[in-house]
Simulated scan of single mutants.
Amino acid sequence: PVVNENDTVSYEEIRFGDNDRLSALVAQLIDADLLLLLTTVEGLRERGGAGPLIPCVAAEDDVEQHLAQARTPTGVGGMRTKVDAAQWAARRGVEAVIAQASLEDVLLRVLQGEAVGTRFAPVEPGQAGGQRGGGGRRRWLRLTAKARGVLRVDEGAQRALVERGASLLPSGLVAVEGAFEAGDVVEIALPGQAPFARGLASYASHEARSLVGRQSSEIEEVLGVCYSEEIVHRDDMVLLRTDAAPSTAATREPSS
Rank of each mutant, 00 (worst) to 15 (best):
Q65R: 14
T242H: 13
G93R: 12
A121V: 15
A189R: 09
L169A: 08
L107M: 13
R92Y: 06
T242Q: 13
V162E: 09
V57L: 06
L22H: 01
G51H: 02
E181H: 11
R137C: 02
G133H: 11
S217I: 10
G183I: 09
E104L: 14
V238R: 09
A197R: 09
P1C: 11
G126P: 05
E5Y: 01
G213N: 12
F180L: 04
G135V: 07
Q193H: 11
V63S: 05
E155L: 06
P122D: 10
R109D: 06
V185Q: 05
R80C: 00
I231A: 02
D61L: 01
V186T: 01
L143E: 15
L29T: 08
A244E: 01
E114C: 01
A121F: 00
E124Q: 15
A32L: 03
V3N: 02
G134V: 08
A90F: 03
G126R: 12
V186A: 01
K82N: 11
K146E: 14
A70G: 10
T118K: 13
A249T: 14
I30G: 00
H206N: 13
S247M: 08
Q158D: 05
R119F: 09
Q127L: 06
S210I: 00
P55L: 09
T118I: 12
Q100D: 14
L211K: 09
A24G: 12
R198N: 01
G51A: 01
A89K: 02
V174R: 12
L168C: 07
W88K: 03
E155C: 13
Q69W: 03
